[in-house]
């Protein structure tokens, strides 16, 4: 009995989203990044086109974080107080494909930074790096609805990726992205139906689907990673079978989730059976990311430079064409 390769025939591809805009396109980026467009399940080059590789972002804050593990000091300690310098270091020294700027300082319980101050930080970061930029709010709905539209307006033409819109709170950000021509992160709570519904709501407001990136809300390894993983696999399968509202690139806050966990932070003195903290944290983050790449993640948002470099290498290897 001879072996005959089992190749799927898909009806559809994942849509592409392009981040950033060069001078010719009305922005100031040195280059743009396009994600999505897959015509096959993750890295199965033998049965479809995979035109764009997944990308690795490093996360930068608009102020020095109070709670990041001490192991980050040697990487970012000298730039924590300068978001622009921090972003620059992430790209130039640590090879980030793009930067995710989290405006945590806007949180009323942290710095309560004004929309204008936030917009300034965003522009400073834009000036410091050539790569496309993702901007996330502080996570407090009311404040983000004040901040993000101002950020969008002040950076009109830059084609940022801005987040997040949720089912109960998407109109303000969608309108801002439409008017100022940015891309939007549509976040759903590990629920494929809400994911689809939200994308429908956003496209009904006339934001085209080539400006939407899905955030299914992943969790860290050991804290529910498999839930996000399965939602993503279902979404990607649905996308390839023709479901347009699932046929969008996906993003995940890997660093943010992983570095909250005990397993990434606990000292070896407290948990001798778990081994050394920093390598453990790096591998907790890298294992989370490597799993999610297999489920179709397109933009992996990470924190530890070593974990990021491991994942970039993993992506490079997986983008080598395979044949059966």
């Amino acid at each position: 009995m001879a072996f005959n390769a089992v190749k799927e025939k898909y009806r559809s591809k994942v849509g592409e989203v392009t981040l950033g805009a060069t001078k010719e396109q009305g922005g100031t980026r040195g280059y743009t990044i396009t994600v999505g467009g897959e015509g096959a399940l993750p890295f199965l080059h033998f049965e479809g086109e995979i035109p764009n590789r997944p990308v690795v972002a490093l996360e930068v804050w608009d102020h020095a974080p109070a709670d990041w593990n001490a192991c980050f000091d040697s990487y970012f300690g000298d730039v924590y107080n300068d978001a622009a310098a921090w972003a620059k270091k992430c790209v130039e020294e640590y090879g980030a494909d793009l930067i995710v700027l989290r405006l945590k300082g806007a949180d009323p319980d942290i710095n309560d930074a004004s929309p204008e101050d936030c917009a300034k930080v965003v522009k400073d970061v834009l000036a410091a790096v050539e790569c496309p930029l993702v901007v996330l709010g502080c996570g407090k709905e009311e404040k983000d609805n004040q901040v993000l539209p101002v950020v969008a307006e002040e950076t009109s033409g830059e084609n940022l990726l801005i987040g997040v819109a949720e089912q109960e709170n998407y109109k303000s950000l969608t309108a801002a992205c439409m008017v100022h021509k940015h891309n939007i992160i549509a976040q759903s709570p590990i629920d494929i139906n809400i994911c689809k519904q939200l994308n429908i709501l956003i496209t009904e407001m006339n934001l085209p689907d080539d400006r939407i990136v899905i955030d299914p809300t992943i969790a860290a390894l050991g804290y529910g990673l498999e839930y996000g993983y399965s939602i993503m696999e279902r979404a990607r399968n649905g996308a390839l079978q023709g479901d347009k509202m699932l046929g969008l690139p996906m993003i995940g806050n890997v660093g943010f989730e992983v570095w909250r966990t005990k397993e990434a932070n606990a000292s070896v003195e407290d948990f001798p059976a778990w081994g050394e903290q920093e390598p453990r944290g790096i591998l907790w983050e890298a294992t989370t990311a490597t799993a999610l790449l297999q489920a179709g993640m397109d933009i992996v948002v990470m924190r530890h430079p070593k974990a990021a470099s491991l994942i970039k290498q993993n992506i490079e290897e997986l983008m080598v064409a395979n044949e059966v």
Binding site: L221, G222, L225, E226, Y229, S230, E263, A273, W274, G275, E276, Q277, P279, R280, L283, W284, A286, T287, A291
Partner: peptide
């Protein structure tokens, strides 16, 4: 090493749970 194996066995446990 412990810090190397722990993430792998954890992902294995997660992946093989009954959804």
């Amino acid at each position: 090493k412990k810090e190397e194996i722990l993430p792998l066995v954890s992902w294995r446990q997660n992946l093989f749970t009954d959804p």
